[in-house]
Design a protein around this nucleic acid. Sequence first.
DNA 1: GCTTGACTTGAAGTTAACTCCAGGTATTAC
DNA 2: GTAATACCTGGAGTTAACTTCAAGTCAAGC
Lengths: 130, 130
Amino acid sequence: MNISQVSKKYGLSIDTLRYYEKEGLIPPVHRNESGIRDYTEQDCGWVEFIKCMRGAGLSIETLREYISLHAKGNCTLQKRKDLLIAERAKLQERLQEMQETLKRLNYKIDFYDKKIVACEKELLGRRKNK
Amino acid sequence: MNISQVSKKYGLSIDTLRYYEKEGLIPPVHRNESGIRDYTEQDCGWVEFIKCMRGAGLSIETLREYISLHAKGNCTLQKRKDLLIAERAKLQERLQEMQETLKRLNYKIDFYDKKIVACEKELLGRRKNK
DNA sequence: GCTTGACTTGAAGTTAACTCCAGGTATTAC
DNA sequence: GTAATACCTGGAGTTAACTTCAAGTCAAGC
């Protein structure tokens, strides 16, 4: 799979894919004889994983660290787990905050509904009194 | 209430408070005779609201638009409601995505648990065989 | 054999959202 | 009255995360 196919498949720009690789967010992608990227299933798996984690707000820095630990093999299993646990905690906090804000938005939208109705009534009333 | 008290109260830097005001994210703050900001209850309310919305990922641009509509009075009620509905939809999408990722992290952490146990067993096994 | 189009690289540019700085004013403490 | 402190402004600088660019390679079609 070449880079533009991967780009379409995951909705990440070609430039972003190269950037992620350059920055060590995904392990080096397999290349053909002439140096052109040829993504394996596994390479695609990494792309998908990174896309997912970035979408949840994990930083480039954190993901680079994770991949770097991964590259060092089994002796970093515990460290990787700890990293994921820390990131999960942050994610849970963000989720909580956002859920609160969602509730607030719902409430606010309801409030606007009522306000709009009240406002229309007032306009109607004024017209009658003219 | 002066700016440093507001800064402490909401955990936003003084520079950020001034920046938000300059950018029109909050309506102009009340000033005393010598031009120094003196936040009223209402000013604080706006700060809190913007902090909350920024925390949920609403952009500066969007919030500026909202405040600008607010400043124009009742004839923008419907537009403001529409804006909030659109932002709520985006927020819900972000939430969904993040919840999926949370599940995935949970799964992955479990997986690491098992892998670590398996790895330790293997090490133990090797030691016995020596 | 040469043009076209997709790939490559390193480096520079962009964007959003702050954050810092220099130079100035006003109030309080001594 | 002057030194310290907290505020003010406009503008420059920073950071993360891309995004664009210039210059080059390579394979396919004509």
